[in-house]
Design a protein around this nucleic acid. Structure first.
Lengths: 204, 204
DNA sequence: GCCGTCGTATGACATCTGTCATCCGGCAGT
DNA sequence: ACTGCCGGATGACAGATGTCATACGACGGC
């Protein structure tokens, strides 16, 4: 029979990572050959271990799983990419696929889908939740410009306009202009609501 | 040798839950006899399955793991309680212990600590991260009143004062007063920052 | 070359938010 | 009985935020 599938597992929470490794370890045809806890450790580890499939959590320090996916698909295009996330945000799906992901799984899907997805991507298939795919297509593309996104992200923790202006080397008026247009694009009533909406859609 | 330890596992994300079950399943002396995905299913499941230890995630729909812990320790005091969480917030630790938890683990601790904690609580020990315990003691008690907490929670998603007043049947002025005192208690500069700080400390 | 968009900026204006003083009724300690 | 705290409220004020018009240089597409 065919050799075992070599998997790289990237997930920052040790307990979850090792638990997922245990889960995959129960499968005869799958072997977890490397584990990393940070996005920026993915590429080096993949280079070192000659992996078939990389399993990438999105929320990680160093770099997100999506950023890691983009790097991998450029540097090691033979490696198949499964993106895993807590949040089924349509925008995540979109950018993950644009970054070269072959599968997109949410963590509240049944565990059996994990091993299944690994096998399927190796066979050249793509695996995505149809509901999520529909949602991603329905909501359209991210309407925010780079700068607007950046400023919204910076505004998330409760910074004042003065803080933001200083942090981003802008005038306070400019900060307010960007926030104002972002608020309108997202049909929010203030910056906090705008941040929430953008987060929900996966646009940040 | 002693019979196997019967564990109830409560965690909303199926993939993580089943992965943790797989991890615990590798231990000879531990058996996962029940799995639930919601906080409000914990007590019924515990009643039905005669468990020794309940493993409770905090962030769950229906009821939090902490609320479930409080119920369990009242209704089935023989069951040992391990609280598991993504976020190492000192306030969580405090309320978890006050709710009768015997152990408190964060998900980015090594996986080995999970089985270890299960065995220890059954032996009557308590398991908590010393660093977190120190932080919990250092930061003192939650300074917010019930109402302040409630209003901060409601303000989290970007509601305006008018929204909050309507939702909580208060005058707008009263809403502003509560937010103002909360902001000062938390040494924040606006509601958004206050929410962030309260969240970080586990006071919401 | 022209048009649209983006990044950046200013000024004026209206509204929202945060602060403060002050008040009331209820309730827990002392 | 007195004190203090909580929930709730009002009014006044200052400062922060959101909106709008307008402007300019850079760049991309047509």
């Amino acid at each position: 029979m065919s050799p075992t599938i070599k998997v790289l597992l990237a997930e920052d929470q040790s307990m979850v990572r090792e638990a997922l490794a245990a889960l995959l370890g129960l499968e005869d045809d799958i072997e977890v050959v490397a584990q990393v806890a940070r996005g920026d450790e993915v590429l080096p580890a993949a280079r070192e271990h000659d992996v078939d499939v990389a399993l990438l959590d999105i929320e990680m320090p160093g770099a997100t799983g999506i950023e890691a996916a983009a790097l991998l698909s450029k540097e090691l295009p033979a490696v198949k990419l499964v993106v895993l996330t807590t949040f089924g945000r349509p925008g995540y799906l979109r950018t993950a696929m644009e970054s070269g992901a072959d599968a997109f799984l949410v963590k509240d899907a049944p565990a059996a889908q994990l091993a299944e997805a690994v096998r399927k991507v190796l066979a050249g298939e793509r695996v995505i939740d149809p509901t999520l795919a529909a949602a991603a297509l329905a909501e359209g593309a991210n309407p925010l410009t780079d700068r607007e996104r950046e400023i919204l992200r910076a505004a998330e923790n409760g910074s004042t306009n003065a803080d933001l202006a200083a942090a981003l080397h802008l005038s306070q008026g400019t900060v307010r202009n960007y926030l104002s247009t972002a608020i309108q694009k997202l049909t929010a009533r203030n910056r906090a609501e705008a941040v929430r909406i953008a987060r929900e859609k996966g646009w940040l």
